[in-house]
Amino acid sequence: MSALETEAEPTATSSGFMRSATATLQHARYTFAENPVSGIAFALFVVLLICAVIGPAIVPYSPLASDTAAALKPPSLQHWFGTDQLGRDMFSRVVVATRLDMAIAVFSVALVFAMGGVAGIAAGFFGGWIDQVVGRTADTIMAFPLFVLAMGIVAALGNTVTNIVIATAIINFPLYARIARAEANIRRDSGFVQAARLTGNSEMRIVLTQILPNIMPIMVVQMSLTMGYAILNAAGLSFIGLGVKPPTPEWGIMVAEGAGFIVSGDWWIAFFPGAALMLAVFCFNLLGDGLRDIVDPQRRT
């Protein structure tokens, strides 16, 4: 849903990246203290990170080992989240899946940040034909029904994790390009850039030292919001059969497959991965909101 957040509020126009960074840190501490929801989201994020890093090492069972004798068992002391159709331990699968889902989210966001950020800054800073090309490309992508575009890309390139990442990055491209363009455009002729120019800095150097640091905060907000969207997008692709390869555990595919068992009463197969997915998306969205409060100078008091 974060695909909609195209309205970028202009951020700090001050120079001095270091100073603003310290201030931001202080402000962050204040915001998290002030805003319990963001605090909880941050705590959740830490838990997700831990699961992603050491998850495979701490789970009680192999996420791939089947045990057909213990298939479709409800949650119990042996199997906290129950077992699936093939008797695989759902708790282990859900925890281990964290790494892959986080990877999908992080890499797709990193990719779109690289593509959209560079294109947008170039468009905003240099203007002219670059601006035209980037603008047209973004318009064209925006005119597509985005989920269907993602489907098309994955169907055409093959359903691998890499292609899911690429597809997610492409459909988010316009958003990043536009934000970066707007931010770069505002600053192109600002005082601190003029000053840098006068002191003999090359355009490239100005982009790297003056423009980029200043648009980072708003981009970070966007990235947080997009990460949640990336996970949802992957889940949607799984639902129509374009997800990752079995038997790899991934939340979306587990929810999609488990959904078929809801009516028969085996709710846990869809519930736990669904809950994990929801918490992750929830956490990224709230974090994004919280970060927005941090970088939005209008709200600094």
Partner: peptide, 27 residues
Amino acid sequence: VVNEPICVLTQESLAQIGIKVTLNKIP
């Protein structure tokens, strides 16, 4: 619904005799 679990179980079983199987789902 039928093919995927068949393949997953077969994959696991073949791994026991050293045959490493990658699954490929085809639309």
